[in-house]
Design a protein around this nucleic acid. Structure first.
Lengths: 212, 212
DNA sequence: GGCGGCCATCAGGATATTGCTGGTGGAGGA
DNA sequence: TCCTCCACCAGCAATATCCTGATGGCCGCC
């Protein structure tokens, strides 16, 4: 997003070369619209967009809980803008004239960091699981999961198509190795099935379970 | 405040020339002591102070409601530190090697701004929080919050929708890692709920809390 | 030095989760 | 087809977890 299309062009091409997928907006309202998609990994924001203050765009994003990282571009010497930008919810800033590799590097760092924090949602079929918010949905409807169920479901969703043995599950969920004395695992599988669908987790008799 | 006395010397002299009145601390505890005076316009904090993490000093200041602006000095390339710093309550950061005029300029900007009471107010649903004035409203009605409650609420409001574990809260609020000896966190959550609404903060048993 | 408010902690009670049991159903082998 | 054994599930008691009123101590302010 840039006020000067040439700069934007150059920046966009550079970032594309660095492996990013880029979209542009040349004014505030367009930027707002783009941001509402919430499908971005990060945004580069030039302060001083026409028609709307760049900071206002940022504030509006944050107000709408768009939490992708934002890198601010500012002209050299406008300190207050930078500080205001950080306070408005920006994650980093960089001064013009900028070096492309630096922008790319910072963007990568921001994205890497936000990946550690941002809600990373796993999707499989009609099932959805966000481990950071603890929310899961099946067919779009939210389902309530307890902590243990959540852990187990998470484990399964990271092992789609693989057979997961009972002992493996016990080990992962409890860090203890009970041999066959209780059927706790079976019970939890049962609960997961009840809350989602009977055929979500298939049982492989004598070997374990598999989700696919 | 500097880990390298030469750098500190140079920085201090430069700032003095620029019209600032400067005091030093060369380690964490001294820095803490200095900060408790609350008679400063601003502080320059070097991450990586001996004996105590620079960020802990900052957190401790903020815990005591010392709200002077803080400018962080960090080595080049440690992005996570910077971002963590901003999250911990710093107002700006600058990378080494730094140019004296730049530091001075940023400091001035920070001080000017802090004098001007730029109020950044967070809004979420019927809840409103102005971190600079410490005022909060619920349904438009003002609610009285103590310093700790305020910091906790602030933390929650920056993590809407995310599960926040008790240990995470303890760590952020106190900079120490108490394992389960007291139920302080529970008590504060309870108080926040009483002052706002019972269902403002949802408890996820075994995992933590979530505000959404 | 006295006072007020904030803070941390305790203890008792409330609640959801956990792990188990026992009875039932069904798969797979002989 | 029948039999055996494994898996399933509803319900239950035990328990970890959480909530909240009360209390004493500390700190800062007057």
């Amino acid at each position: 997003m840039e006020d000067d299309r040439d700069i934007a062009q150059r920046l966009g091409e550079g970032l594309a070369e660095a492996g990013f997928s880029v979209e542009y907006a040349f004014n505030g309202p367009d930027g707002l619209a783009l941001g509402t998609d919430d499908s971005f990994d990060a945004a580069v924001l030039d302060l001083g967009l026409p028609q709307m203050q760049g900071l206002d765009v940022l504030k509006e994003w944050r107000r709408k809980n768009r939490n992708f990282p934002v890198l601010i571009l500012t002209a050299r010497g406008t300190w207050s803008e930078k500080v205001d930008g950080l306070n408005a919810g920006a994650d980093d800033y960089i001064t013009k004239p900028f070096h492309l590799p630096e922008v790319a590097a910072r963007l990568k760092a921001l994205i890497r960091r936000s990946a550690g924090q941002a809600s990373s949602v796993l999707t499989h079929g009609r099932l959805t699981l966000d481990i950071t918010t603890g929310k899961a949905t099946y067919d779009g409807a939210p389902i309530e999961l307890t902590a243990s169920e959540l852990r187990m479901l998470n484990y399964f969703m990271h092992r789609i198509g693989r057979i997961v043995s009972q002992s493996e599950l016990t080990e992962h969920l409890y860090a203890t190795v009970d041999s066959r004395e209780s059927n706790t695992i079976e019970v939890y599988v049962s609960r997961l099935r009840r809350k989602t669908s009977t055929d979500l987790i298939k049982t492989i008799r004598g070997l374990g379970y598999r989700m696919d």
